[in-house]
Design a protein around this nucleic acid. Structure first.
Lengths: 208, 208
DNA sequence: TAGATTGTTAATCGATTAACAATC
DNA sequence: TAGATTGTTAATCGATTAACAATC
């Protein structure tokens, strides 16, 4: 089965399955079922089984799934069995919060470098990292073979920084900047914008 | 047309349209077209017109849309013409970054209270806010009529805090905690998890 | 008028789900 | 064996898109 044929929406659900399985293995639970995962995640059991079936047969009829095995399979599929180096651009409040957020490491990512353009911040220590001059971005990204970046710069700078990142070899960008980036089609981009999330909720709230 | 019939996926795109229109009006652009918005947002022009048509006829054939008018319409539809009070729970790195994030106010939200359970943090000043004891959460949320909360507490505490919030009258929760919340069906929940976002990208990256 | 662009219909495309044989 | 649960097919459901009349 050609991986290119797997719907992106399926791929986007796999990390949720993986997160649930991690928790189960950490809590010592060795077996689960599509039914149980479904009730935890609020996704139908059929959909979970269908999603997994794109990649292989991981369960046993009558029994369910071995949590550790399925977890390892999903980590392999998502390519997070090993850690990816990540560059963080922008050492403001948000960038710093990102640096101190331990979940990245658990999830398969290690911050390899932090950049800012503000001379006030360059050289400072944040968490275990020293903030580097964004002028060195290309050089460091290339040297270290960094493929993933987290963008935590103001909206006005986001496109320019994203361009530099891509030019330096970055293939995936997680952007916190509230602006749609224009990048080559082969670059993976994911946006995080809390305001967009909130505005999608207020529609459903009765007016106050 | 019954608002309940409008697909959620349509509602979720409206904030993106709104954001683009805001930018246009701020830049002095008075007219746009579905075509132009499409190319900015990476969404098809047909889809944008279809989405808008659920709510009315906002454009002029041959001309396009008045940016200020359409912006105002979308703000009304999404109910963000006025500001919503928001409670932030958790005054760690992430909570503090949220407090200093100016986009919320532009987007229609005002932080009305900040809570933490750590006595080290209670009473401290963060941005313009004083951190309150989470024990006072119910009382303050009820008093102030707060309907929306941002959850920035550790995974283990998230469900319990969410329960308190809902009991106190909160109807929408934006959660940064990496755990699926179990809440009544009428409560709006939106999750933000950067790790989930990154793991959905690594699938597509060639192994390093 | 000619050109542009909307709003909408119908066709297409894709995702979800119900049902069930296989089998542990 | 009986009960449980998988993997998969086919049917259903829903979202996107192509096409175009309406009209500014």
């Amino acid at each position: 089965m050609n991986p290119l044929e797997i719907p992106e929406i399926v791929i986007r659900r796999l990390p949720l399955y993986l997160r649930a399985l991690k928790r189960m293995t950490e809590e010592g639970q060795s077996v689960t079922s599509s039914q149980e995962m479904a009730s935890r995640l609020g996704i139908s059991a059929t959909q979970i089984r269908k999603d997994l079936s794109y990649f292989g047969e991981f369960g046993k009829q009558g029994t369910g799934y071995d949590t550790a095995f399925l977890r390892a399979q999903l980590e392999a599929i998502l390519q997070v069995s090993k850690h990816w180096k990540v560059a963080v651009v922008g050492a403001g409040d948000l960038g710093c919060a990102v640096l101190r957020y331990s979940q990245f490491e658990d999830g398969g990512f290690i911050v390899a470098a932090v950049f800012d353009r503000d001379s006030q911040k360059i050289g400072r220590q944040v968490g275990h990292y020293q903030v580097l001059d964004v002028a060195r971005l290309s050089a460091v990204v290339e040297e270290q073979g960094i493929r993933i970046a987290i963008l935590a710069v103001p909206a006005e700078e986001a496109q320019a920084v994203a361009n530099s990142l891509v030019e330096a070899g970055v293939k995936g960008i997680l952007s916190y900047a509230p602006v749609p980036l224009e990048l080559p089609a082969d670059i993976q981009v994911h946006y995080i914008d809390p305001v967009i999330g909130l505005q999608g909720m207020t529609y459903y709230l009765s007016p106050s």
